[in-house]
Amino acid sequence: MSNLLNKLSVRSPWLFRINAGSCNGCDVELATTALIPRFDVERFGCRYCGSPRHADVVLITGPVTLKMRDKVLKLWDEIPNPKVTVAVGICPISGGVFRDSYSLAEPLDHLIPVDVNVPGCPPRPQAILEGVVLAKKIWMRKLGIEEG
């Protein structure tokens, strides 16, 4: 356990969240994960930031509607490298229940490289925490700090 704690306390990735047309389920769960003491994502050094330029880990929810596609791409581009992309919920991963709709762009991993998937509709905060911890591991691997 202390080994895990050591691993987790090396650096603090900041989180940025993009709602790409979600039904609020995953967003509310993300807010719950990040902002309330019960799940307290700040234990892992993570915190939400308002600007994509400060972010290290980006959490994307929603099925990427046509209208949001360019905005998602632009925002994603503004995040400095190395960045880790997390797809939260089944919508960005596969389209979910909205699969085959005329107003959806492609699944997220056709548009940008995704690193972590957290399926669920919506995933519970504990599952999102698992995803954030995994994203942090990948982020540190990308930084060359530690072999995950």
Binding site: D109, V114, N117, R124, E130
Partner: peptide, 14 residues
């Protein structure tokens, strides 16, 4: 079993 987070490399094995 709600443990669903996984890396992209194993996306299609889920």
């Amino acid at each position: 079993d709600w443990h669903s987070a996984h890396e992209q490399a194993v996306k299609y094995q889920q």
